[in-house]
């Protein structure tokens, strides 16, 4: 398993802002790697460092084992799908897709043929003569993708490519992108702030915060075993138990988290079990989300826990639990996760 991209203690700052602070990671050749984080966390700067639009102030960047920190973008075997697509407005779709071939001196007939194949790959055949201004957001997205793939890069960088699309189209493109990556077997590095997107598409992901990586791992590792408070809070919804409750239930003074969907809510006190812990609380409110209902429960010791209940069958007609009612919460002890200090 060779590394497609290696960062060794890479730092980059703009003026006085440390955008990327001693970041190290490795992207394995052929994997779908996501960089997840809130805006301003340094993920896009990392992408721009890989593409070569920025040069790091310190640290080492390797592309397929070769030092790349000072290679200009046009010398790298890496292509980018930009957040705003960055299509050339004065060229038609064919001109945009064939651009990478044109600047490399490929003959017109060959580049039109290859660009045509690329357009077929992204299901845009028949639109070759259109201008970017005449396309919908989803079509522009596909043109950007075809344009970035025409040079057969070994690494494809995607900078929040689906951010501007509506939900339905986004879900469809997620499936298509993943499918494309499996078929082409190239490394995808995917920047997003959408944790669901990162979890569902990636082989592995890195969670960024304030210019540093908080945790790297498979989606399951990140979700099930968040390394610290930030990861637990950013990826999915997490309850962090109040210290008194944590001490009582888990016997630790460290922060302890529990996922809302792992908590069982009942109106009667559940039977005591060795493997489970239980606690009483007061229902504050409940929000109906269709597939699930989200409930907020206040604890007598202070603090609130969020509980997600799957609506496996219709509850219409059942008397709803009204706010203010006393309820019992219980969960498996193994579902509790002791968090690091968040450093």
């Amino acid at each position: 398993m060779a590394a497609a991209v290696t960062f060794e203690s890479v730092s980059h700052h703009f003026a006085h802002v440390r955008a990327v602070d001693r970041v190290s990671f490795e992207v394995v050749d052929g994997e779908f790697f996501s960089m997840l984080g809130p805006s301003g966390s340094g993920k896009t700067t990392c992408l721009r460092l890989i593409a070569g639009f920025e040069r790091p102030q310190s640290g080492t960047i390797l592309l397929h084992g070769a030092a790349a920190a000072h290679l200009p973008p046009f010398e790298r075997d890496v292509n980018t799908v930009f957040q705003d697509y960055a299509l050339f407005p004065h060229m038609n779709v064919m001109g945009n897709v064939a651009y990478g071939l044109m600047v490399r001196g490929v003959t017109r007939t060959e580049r039109e043929q290859r660009a045509g194949e690329m357009l077929a790959l992204v299901k845009l055949d028949g639109l070759a003569d259109r201008r970017p201004g005449q396309l919908s957001g989803g079509q522009r997205q596909r043109v950007a993708l075809a344009r970035a793939l025409i040079n057969h890069p070994r690494v494809l960088l995607l900078d929040e490519p689906l951010g501007a699309l509506d939900l339905k189209l986004r879900e469809q493109m997620q499936i298509e992108l993943k499918d494309l990556q499996r078929r082409l077997r190239i490394t995808f590095i995917y920047v997003t702030h959408d944790q669901e997107e990162a979890l569902s598409m990636s082989d592995r992901l890195a969670v960024f915060n304030e210019g540093r990586i908080e945790q790297i791992g498979t989606p399951e590792q990140i979700y099930e075993h968040p390394a610290n408070r930030f990861v637990a809070g950013f990826v999915g919804v997490s309850n962090v138990l109040p210290p008194a409750v944590a001490k009582q239930l888990a016997g630790t003074s460290a922060a302890v988290s529990i996922r809302p969907e792992r908590i069982r809510l009942s109106e009667q006190q559940p039977a005591a079990e060795q493997t489970h812990c239980r606690i009483e609380g007061t229902l504050v409110d409940s929000q109906y989300h269709g597939a699930a209902t989200r409930l907020r429960v206040a604890l007598p010791a202070g603090g609130e826990l969020t509980v997600v209940r799957q609506n496996q069958r219709s509850r219409t007609g059942e008397p709803a639990i009204s706010p203010g009612a006393q309820v019992w919460l219980s969960w498996h002890r193994e579902d509790m996760q002791v968090l690091g200090d968040g450093a």
Binding site: F53, P73, F74, V78, T80, Y99, A148, N151
Partner: peptide, 9 residues
Amino acid sequence: DASQDLGAH
């Protein structure tokens, strides 16, 4: 950026 990225000097 896109132009450079696609190989144009």
